[in-house]
Design a binder for these strands. Structure first.
Lengths: 142, 142
DNA sequence: AACAAATCGTTGCAGATGCAACGATATTGA
DNA sequence: TCAATATCGTTGCATCTGCAACGATTTGTT
């Protein structure tokens, strides 16, 4: 058995290569890490979210959320609020600037992703989508 | 557009989940990182390899190879040699213990991978294999 | 031969990461 | 009520990581 034919390895390499390609975009344009990008993505599409919501929906733990949110705050892209109902919790929302930057950036990221996906045949693309969906179901629970 | 339906995100989540599952095995059994596991994998299937060979075939850079190899050496799983032809280069090879541990560990890792893959339907599994192969081709070069 | 440039591996350092401990707040139960 | 317990976010710390710089060695040039 060769490493290059070991499926888990191939999956990891493909995913890393794809991811790095996208990271290039928001890293260079806005200086965002992948974690920050994920939070901005969620917050740009929601009125507001708590840390726990963010953690659940990004597969980040609370420390990562806390730090990524802190940096996004320092960049003026999101703001943090402490609700009176429960002062342990933090509620985040996009700033106007955050929305603006996201609207500017998202199409570029999408375009970069599409560039790679469009380099594949429609059949391969569909297979990939189907395979990843199926894998998500079985790998998540385990 | 929701984050959960954004393909790059789904790919990353699936890959991370899969990878973490396998890491559990060689992390717990031998205290190996993913980098170390990759090097051991290559060296257990080759007579010997140089740092450059290892780097090329693992998508690790030379620093990662150097550090992972150092740790594998400290664990007695591989040895390092400096060839007389070119004393800048390092040549690595598995120790008897390295081969032994790999033969012991590899089936367990494979089994864990198979457990997840077998939880998928044959069609999904095939689609996944096809999709990842195609993705590797386009994402690597870019 | 001798010096400049290139190659290779390692190390130092700054920043990132994961984990446990902590402080603040809220909930529970006696 | 109030003390014990649980929840949430942040911080400290040890470790890991990526990058540039470095020393050792080899190659190329004159």
């Amino acid at each position: 058995m060769q490493l290059d034919s070991f499926f888990p390895y191939r999956l990891a390499v493909a995913s890393e290569a794809f991811s790095r390609n996208l990271t290039d975009v928001y890293e260079r344009e806005l200086g965002l890490s992948r974690e920050e990008w994920r939070l901005l993505f969620l917050l740009a599409n929601a009125e507001s979210m708590t840390s726990l919501d963010l953690a659940r929906r990004t597969t980040l733990d609370k420390v990562q959320v806390s730090r990524a949110a802190k940096r996004l705050g320092e960049k003026g892209l999101i703001v943090r609020e402490i609700p009176d109902e429960d002062r342990r919790i933090r509620v985040y929302r996009c700033t106007t600037e955050g929305f603006r930057q996201f609207r500017h950036l998202q199409p570029k990221v999408q375009e970069r992703a599409n560039r790679m996906l469009n380099a594949m045949s429609p059949e391969d693309r569909e297979a990939l989508e189907q395979g990843i969906s199926a894998l998500l179901k079985v790998a998540k629970s385990d």
